[in-house]
Every structure is written in C-alpha cells, then in structure tokens.
Simulated scan of single mutants.
Amino acid sequence: MNWLKEVFKTEKPIIAMCHLQALPGDSGYDQEKGMEWVIEKAREDLHALQDGGVDAVMFSNEFSLPYLTDVKKETLAAMGRVIGEIKSEITVPFGVNVLWDAKASLDLAVATGACFVREIFTGVYASDFGLWNTNCGETVRHQHAVGAQNVKLLFNIVPEAAVYVEQRNIREVAKTTVFNCRPDALCVSGLTAGESTDTQILSEVKSVVPNTVVLANTGCRIENITTQLSVADGAIVGTTFKKDGKFENGVDYNRVKAFMDLVKEFR
C-alpha cells in the first residue's frame, strides 16, 4: 500500500469530488450558459476544495444523468476541455471518473495527466442503466495500449444503483477481485451518492484483503468520518462538501474546512 502515501503525501487521504455540470449532449446541459459557465463552476468548486484542505480531487461528469456505460465522444471532449482550462490552478493530485466508462476514464487520464481513475472494472449487474457488463482484462490491456500504466485503478466493487446478476458475498467479491484483477484500491459504496458506506462492510472487505487499499466511497460526513477512517485507508467525499449537504449544490468552503480540520486532527 506504499503507493497511497507516495501519491497523496499523507496517510488516510481524502479525495474530494469535483462534480462537473451537465455537458453538451446531456439532457441537463444549459446551452445558453454554455461551456464557459461549466468551466467557471468547476473552477469555483476546485478552489473551495483545495482551499479547504483536501488531499486530492477527482473530476467526474456527475450531472450527466442518466449515465451511459459507453460514453459519447462529446462528453469526453468536454471533460478534457474543462480540466485543461483549469489544470494550471490544480495544486493537489487529481483523478478522473467518466461515468460509467472505464476505457474513457483511462483515455481522459492520459490526455489530462490524471494519476488515478475510479470505475466499475469488474462484474455483471442489473442496474438502473440496464444490464451492465464489464471486461476487466480488455480494459487493462487498453490501459497499457494508451500508455496509462502509471494511472492507479480504483475499483468500485459495490456499484451505486446496481446489484450483481448473481448475488455474491462482498467478502468473496473483494477476495476474487484482488486475486484476479490486481486493483490498486477497492472502493466500497452505499446505495447512491451521499448514502453512507456501512462500516461493517468496510471491515469485512479489509479483513479479507489486508494488503490492498480500501476506500470508503460514499456517504462520508463529519459525523462519521473518524469511524470510517478507523477502518478504511482513505475516503472519497462528494455530497457532504456541498452547500447544505445537498448533491445538486456547489461546494461550500466552510464545510470542507471543518471536515478536513477534523480529519487532520484524527490523523
């Protein structure tokens, strides 16, 4: 697990989500405000997160609802433009997540210089987005083909809004995923964005893969973060950093700082 501290320069890192507004082609895209507004909102959130003390940021097309598992070219192009426009202002390690397309995430990481991606790399699911299949072997070969060998792969093993076609115990999923796929980290989630990750599930996962990084992936709040970090090796945090703790809102610097002050005291 040495890579975690090498990349994030701290134990128990907090990776903050920088949710991009709806992009061209998305149902919620605001054509009147255009891409300049999308870029400015991303810039505002980035600075609030960095100024508040987070250890890293991850850019995702969170408002591209409903999500695709084969993302359109215009989405990838738009995300590349947003990150490119504000990259000189990024002062912490950053990653990308193109929802929900693992190869596209790797392509964006190479294009922008991101050092990690989070995705659904393994499994077959019944989901809100239809029957959802993956091909980890093909994706990892694509990773090497595009020169993304040094990009860390964060495997989400409890996909939001989806269940395995064949029900499997989370301990089995974690163990076989690590054995077969060699992930850099496992991300353990709640049911939806902002839904707490069960500490018991975190403990179960960590117990069977003690030498693999395990991250709390959703629902980390100031009320539970020290409990989560007592088990997890770090956390990915989005909704709780928003104004009033609401998914739809922009990032609130004061909420970020209060959260990170507590994390730093815990560390």
Results as ranks from 00 to 15, higher is better:
residue 1 M to P: 06
residue 3 W to A: 15
residue 5 K to A: 14
residue 12 K to C: 02
residue 12 K to Q: 09
residue 12 K to M: 01
residue 14 I to H: 01
residue 16 A to P: 06
residue 16 A to N: 06
residue 17 M to R: 00
residue 19 H to Q: 07
residue 19 H to F: 08
residue 26 D to F: 02
residue 27 S to L: 10
residue 28 G to F: 08
residue 30 D to H: 11
residue 31 Q to D: 12
residue 31 Q to L: 05
residue 32 E to L: 09
residue 32 E to I: 10
residue 36 E to D: 13
residue 40 E to R: 02
residue 40 E to Y: 00
residue 43 R to H: 00
residue 44 E to M: 01
residue 47 H to Y: 11
residue 48 A to G: 03
residue 49 L to W: 09
residue 49 L to R: 02
residue 52 G to Q: 12
residue 55 D to L: 02
residue 58 M to V: 13
residue 63 F to Q: 07
residue 64 S to P: 04
residue 69 T to W: 01
residue 70 D to M: 07
residue 72 K to V: 12
residue 72 K to H: 07
residue 72 K to W: 05
residue 73 K to Y: 02
residue 74 E to A: 11
residue 76 L to F: 04
residue 81 R to D: 03
residue 85 E to G: 01
residue 85 E to W: 03
residue 86 I to L: 14
residue 87 K to S: 15
residue 90 I to N: 07
residue 91 T to S: 15
residue 92 V to C: 06
residue 94 F to G: 08
residue 97 N to S: 12
residue 98 V to R: 00
residue 98 V to I: 08
residue 102 A to D: 09
residue 102 A to N: 03
residue 102 A to C: 04
residue 103 K to Y: 09
residue 109 A to I: 10
residue 110 V to I: 14
residue 112 T to I: 13
residue 112 T to A: 15
residue 114 A to R: 10
residue 115 C to P: 07
residue 118 R to Q: 10
residue 123 G to V: 06
residue 130 G to Q: 14
residue 132 W to K: 11
residue 133 N to I: 05
residue 136 C to S: 09
residue 138 E to Y: 13
residue 140 V to F: 15
residue 143 Q to V: 05
residue 143 Q to D: 04
residue 145 A to N: 13
residue 147 G to L: 12
residue 148 A to L: 08
residue 153 L to R: 15
residue 154 L to F: 15
residue 156 N to V: 08
residue 157 I to W: 14
residue 162 A to W: 04
residue 164 Y to G: 13
residue 165 V to M: 14
residue 167 Q to A: 09
residue 170 I to A: 08
residue 171 R to E: 15
residue 171 R to F: 00
residue 173 V to P: 10
residue 176 T to V: 10
residue 177 T to K: 08
residue 179 F to Q: 13
residue 180 N to R: 15
residue 184 D to Y: 11
residue 184 D to A: 08
residue 185 A to M: 06
residue 186 L to K: 12
residue 189 S to C: 14
residue 191 L to P: 02
residue 191 L to E: 14
residue 192 T to A: 10
residue 194 G to A: 09
residue 195 E to K: 12
residue 196 S to P: 12
residue 197 T to M: 04
residue 197 T to F: 05
residue 200 Q to F: 02
residue 200 Q to N: 12
residue 202 L to Q: 09
residue 204 E to A: 05
residue 205 V to W: 13
residue 207 S to A: 09
residue 208 V to A: 11
residue 210 P to T: 04
residue 213 V to F: 14
residue 216 A to W: 01
residue 217 N to F: 02
residue 217 N to K: 01
residue 218 T to K: 06
residue 219 G to K: 06
residue 223 E to C: 12
residue 223 E to I: 06
residue 225 I to A: 04
residue 227 T to Q: 15
residue 227 T to N: 04
residue 228 Q to F: 11
residue 230 S to C: 11
residue 238 G to W: 03
residue 240 T to I: 04
residue 247 F to T: 14
residue 254 N to E: 08
residue 256 V to L: 03
residue 257 K to M: 01
residue 259 F to M: 06
residue 261 D to K: 07
residue 261 D to G: 01
residue 264 K to D: 05
residue 266 F to I: 02
